[in-house]
Structure formats: structure tokens, C-alpha cells
Design a protein around this nucleic acid. Structure first.
Lengths: 214, 214, 214, 214
DNA sequence: AATGAATGAGGATTCATTCAT
DNA sequence: AATGAATGAATCCTCATTCAT
């Protein structure tokens, strides 16, 4: 699990306000669509204060990104804790519930901000933004792997499966912001999860192990 | 399948140049990160020409988005043709190959542009950007559904499965732009596809149909 | 009566359309608030045509002004004809009716255009714009003078009286564009006219001939 | 009397300079004929300062208009004070002197600015511009009414008479800016005033109450 | 450390006008 | 003579940033 620690430094009240405003606005409008003045207004400080507490605009964006990621990392660790303490009963139900809870616990704001960072031309930001997803994927994959029958043939690839699920859900969260109610969204995510568990064809009916493309 | 026709109008050379430049730059830097002057320079025209041929910046962005989508729609229709002409042999191999070909045929540019549109606060752009993905999902779901054993229990949900796959691949394309070679990327996509087909646990070993959360 | 002849030159259809559009828009938005493109659009020609038929923007404005003035001059002459043919009966009623008819016959457009010309820093335009009012004032003053008792003491000054009335009515027309209905406007103008005829104090009660200020 | 208070707020030096420059230039060239850069240059500030101290161009115009009107309102109140303190001697001479003083005290600048506002398509500006004239008219009408013999037949209409005079004088001030010397202008205004007091025909000689047009 | 003012470049957009066709 | 394209400067306005207080 990559380290992306940040925010443990004590922030003054003004700095915290600015950071929250920056997160909100960068997430909503992206880097270029957000102005320092706008951030300052939302944080109820004058623009000068932004420059006293943060070096400049890129630096502020990076700080906002790191802050959001730090929180996300915490979530990965929380998930890990949950998984570590699981009883060995119904693995599938357990993981399903945990992933659902994770999905619901991720606000759109961080997701959007991370997406903007991924789209940016700044490789450092891209790397930063991708790391928390990798963390979640890693935790999920580990837990999955423990539950997989090691002698199954074909043996499922836990890492790939975890990646597919998390990226799909992440994308789903961003691209369906207002198109459905929370209830509908939850139902859709459950469908995705179920389908993910099931696979398309039950192995008994499925065709042979799939050709390696043409 | 939603209609998103565009670009049938004959474009002058300058307009076509501007449009291509706009697609490229909007895809790279987003709406706010791209300036009309920048577009004009890349298209080798003076800024005024942009305004003669396009109403304004939002309109140009929408035009670029529609153009990219129109091309994507063509791909959906191409995929549909491929599926319609399939022999009834190995369905899985056939679909796998087709989806792989689709994945490789989608340039990053349109994907990025569509992602920026999805992230924008403009609901029309969001809708436009999402439509070609829906088209692909629809075509894939239909074909999948034909191959699914109607009496299987639990019966796979073709629509959800298709959505999960396409959104996941789309996200994958965007978020992994430079992190791996083309070869690695292809291998990863194949893994995703295989995993998608297989499901995590073979039904025979799987736990019961999954609790509805909580 | 000053000569401000114009427009006898034969205009092509396009030129006439442009001129009418120019009059309308210059009257509505003033010189700087009106653009050649806007005029061309309203006249349903391309901007180039404006430059083929008129030298440039100032020249077009002057042409519009002259056109409007020429029509106004015609009105002055019409008024003159009316006055020349009057019977020698009720002079007051006759003039009142004629002035009312004049007031109603002057569209707001020319009045606004002339006002804009008066306000401009171009002395030629100022002179042009003021001339038709002077014409009307002159005609009215002559007719008034004929009706005034040459031995009255104090003897009314027909020129001043005419000027006061016409300028007041002109101002009234411009500054009360939408504030009252046509019916209300006519009633107000009649009040003005009556008051103008009457003077404030009947001479019998009036104080002596008025001090020459201070 | 309508309230149009403004300008009591303390203005910084730069803001005051900008406002004065705006008044001068808007009065000279109208709204569209005046540029922010021009105003900034005259005020000896950089254009950005204009936008720091005023919201935008329309807002600056409105501020300029309100400032000019506030000064005018003060004049109306001054006139009122004068009228309230008048002895009951020669009413006509007293009012004549007061109106003359008012006329001379109104600079051309405010008059032009108000005229431009009246001509604009902005109803709020029209209303603002017209209000100070209404104030003066009201004050004058009240004082006139006190002096009018209530039993005179036909009884003069003080409101209409006041309106006619003030509008006429206002128009006169604008349309005769440079055409005569100050001395000539004063003489002309005195003529107008005398004529206004007198009416055209002494009632004894006048024809019957004037036909209501047709 | 908070504030207002300054900077100067750059944002989108439109202007009047002219050149090639 | 009609048209589209070009020109280049000007429009209003905002940007990120820094300098004086």
C-alpha cells in the first residue's frame, strides 16, 4: 500500500477553511475552472491569505488532492480492519456489504477531484490520484484471494477482479451524479456487485477458457 | 440506441482544422484549460476565424464533443454489424475479440473529452458524453442476452454485466494512459475480460445469492 | 428656412433598406451603440454591401440623419401650407389643431435620432439635427405673429413662444416614450397647448411686466 | 418628491476620480461612446482599479447617473427652501429669479448625462434620469399654485405650466450648447420665462377656450 | 499578519474595414 | 456586384500574483 500521508500538520483555522473550499471548488470545476479569488471568497478570507498559507495555485491543488487522498487512505485502512476482523462465515455477503458501505462512504467530491487529477497532464497528480484506488483494490484483492479455492480451474484472478469492480464503481459514481435517486443508485450498485460475483455464464455452461483473442 | 448524428454538414477546411484542434486541446486540457487563441494557433487560423465559424467557446466545445461522439456511434453500429453477422459458434470468444477490438479502436482523445464532459456542470454535455457508452453497452447487452441460458438460476443480468464491463474498460483507458506499454495494457484488458466472463466463484462453490446488503 | 435637402437621389433597393435599418438602429441605440453588422442584418444584406453603398459609418449616420430631416422639412412645409390656407376665423383653434397634428405625426424614431445628433460632439450633426426644429418654429412663429395684436402691451414675442412650445413638445415626446398611453399622451399635449395659450396669470391679475431678473 | 439619495458613502480618492471622469465622459459621449480605458486614463488609474471599485460598466454608469441626480435633488431642495422663505410680495419676480438661478446653476454635464439616460433602452436609467426634473417641476408647481387665483376662469394648471417650462428650459440647455454666448443664452431664457408668464394672448382678447382638437 | 492597491498579462468576444474571389 | 475570409486593434473583464502598508 503506497504511502500518501498528508494533513497531519496542524492547520490554522484559515488554512483549513481554504483547503476545504479548494477541495470543493477544484472538485466541482477542475483546476482551470477554479480561481483563487473564488476559493478565497468561499473560505471567507482575502486572496492574499491564500498566498500566505499556500505557495501558489498548483501547490494548493496538490494540497487539496493530498488531503482528499489521505482521507481515502484512511478508508482503505478501515476496510482492511473490517476484513481482518471478519468471521469466516459467508465471505461473499461480508465482502459485498463492505464494498457497498465503501461505495456509499465515498463522497462525489473526492471522486471528482481525483478524476480531474487523473485527467491532468501533471504526472505527479495522476500518480497521487490513482494511489487510493490502488489501495482499495489491493485490500479487496487480498481478502478475495483468501476466499478463493486455490485448486479451482480456471482460478479467478483476485487482483483483476478487484480492479474491475473498483474502477467500474468509481466510474459509476462520477458519471451518474444526478441521474438517479440514492435508492436507485444503491440498487444499481447491488446489481453490479451481484453480477460481478456471478460471472456471465455459470462455469458448467460456459465455453472453454476463452481464446487469447483471435 | 440514441441518435447523436452530427458532422454530416460539409465543413470548410478551416472549420475542420479548428474542430480537430479543439478536440485535441479540449481532450488534453479540459474546457477551462483550453483557450480560443490556443485552438486558433494549433489550427493555424486567426482567432477571429474561430468566431466566424463557431458561435462561441461553449458552442465549439459542444461541436467537438458531438463530433467525437458521432465517430463513437459509428463504432457502436460497427460493433452491432459484427455481432449480427456472427456465426453461432463460440460466443464467448467472439464477443471477447470484438470487445477487445473496440477497446483498442477507441483513442484516448475521445475518451478524455467525454470524461471532461461528464465532469462538467453542464447537464447537456453530460448527457451527450454518456450516450455513446450507453450505445455500446446496449449493443453488447443485446448480444449477450441472446447467448444466456434463459433457464439459468441465478440468471445473469446482461445489461448490468455489459455496463460493468464497458464502464470499467472506459475508466481503465483513461486512468492508465502512460503507466504501461500497449502490450501490457492489452494483457490487462484481456485479464479483465476473462475475469468478467468467469465471475469470482464458480456458482457451484459460491455462497447463496448474496444478502441484500446490511 | 434652412435647406437640408437630401434623398432625392435615386436609391437602390438595398441602399434604401440599409438606410431604413440605420435610421431605426441609430435612433434606438445611438451612434456608438449601433454596429454596421447589426444594420446589415436588419437590412438583410451582408456588411460589405453597406460599404459599397456608403462610405463608412459616420457617413451612414449622416445620411440617416439627413433622410430623417428631409422628411421633417417636408412636414414644416406641409404645416406652412396648412397655415397659408387657413381662413381668418378662430386662429387659436386652428393653430392648436395644426400643432397637435404635427406632434402626432412626428414618430419617435426621428426625434430620438435628432436628439442623439444634438448630443453628439460633431458640430455638423448638431446643426443638421437642429434645423428642422428651427423650421417648424419659424413657420409657427410667422403664423402666430400675424395673429398677435400689434398694439398689445406687453406684446407677446411670437418667436420665443413658438420656440418654447416646440422644444417643450419635442422633449416631451422623447422623454415620455412608454410612460403613458397614446390617449394619455394626447391629453397631456393638449394641456400643454392650452396652458401655453393662456399664460399663468391673466394679465388683469398679473404683476407688472416682470423684472429683468434680480 | 421622490428620494434618490446616493453618494453619502465615503469614496476613496481613486473612486471619486473615477466617478468624476465617468460623469464627464458619459455625459460627453454617451454610454457606448465611452470606454472604461478612457475613463481610467482620465482618472489617472489603471483600468483594473475601475473594476475593483465598481462592479462593471453599467454599474459605473448608474453610479455616475445617481451622483449627478443626487446633486440635482439637492438643488430641488434648495429651490424649495428659497420658495418657502419667500415674502409674499412680487411672486412673479421672485419665481422668475429663482428659476433663472436654477437654470444657470445646472451644468451642461448633468443635463447631457440625464438626456443620454432618458434615451437609453434601460428603463431604470430612464426613471432615474427623469426623477430630478420631476422634483423641480413639483416644487415649482406647488409654489405656482399658491399664487394662482383659485377663482380665475379658465384656471391655469400649475402642474402643466411648470412641466412645460422646465422641460423646455432643459431641452434648451442641451440643444444650444455652443450656439450662443452666456449672455445671449441668459437673455433667451429670460424671454422664454416672460413669454411663459404672459401667455400668447391676453385672455381679454383671446378666443374662446380652444376647441379640443379634432 | 490583515488589508487595499497595483501589476501586467491574458481571457473571450466584437469592432470597422478591406481583400480576394 | 455578391460573398467569405482576413485583419488587427479594440471591446469588457478577470487572472494569478505581489507590493505597499
Amino acid at each position: 500500500m503506497k504511502q500518501a500521508k498528508a494533513e497531519p500538520v496542524k492547520l490554522t483555522k484559515a488554512a483549513a477553511q481554504i483547503l476545504e473550499a479548494a477541495i470543493e471548488l477544484f472538485a466541482a470545476y477542475g483546476y482551470f475552472g477554479t480561481t483563487i479569488r473564488h476559493i478565497a471568497q468561499k473560505a471567507k478570507v482575502i486572496p492574499m491569505t491564500v498566498y500566505r498559507l499556500f505557495k501558489n495555485k498548483p501547490s494548493l491543488f496538490e494540497m487539496a488532492l493530498r488531503t482528499v487522498i489521505a482521507r481515502s487512505v484512511d478508508q482503505a485502512q478501515f476496510l482492511k480492519t473490517v476484513f481482518d476482523n471478519k468471521d469466516n462465515g459467508n465471505v461473499r455477503a461480508f465482502i459485498t456489504a463492505a464494498v457497498l458501505r465503501w461505495y456509499e462512504s465515498v463522497p462525489q467530491q473526492p471522486a471528482r477531484l481525483m478524476m480531474y487529477a487523473c485527467l491532468s497532464r501533471n504526472e505527479q497528480w495522476q500518480g497521487l490520484a490513482y494511489s487510493p484506488l490502488e489501495d482499495i483494490i489491493e485490500v479487496l484483492a487480498e481478502t478475495l484471494d483468501e476466499g478463493i479455492d486455490k485448486k479451482a480451474k480456471p482460478r479467478p484472478n483476485a487482483a483483476v477482479a478487484a480492479r474491475t469492480l473498483i474502477l467500474g464503481l468509481f466510474q459509476f459514481k462520477i458519471t451518474h451524479p444526478k441521474m438517479r435517486s440514492a435508492r436507485q443508485e444503491k440498487a444499481a450498485v447491488e446489481d453490479i456487485l451481484n453480477q460481478w460475483w456471478m460471472g456471465i455464464f455459470p462455469p458448467s455452461l460456459a465455453n472453454p477458457p476463452a481464446s487469447k483473442s483471435t
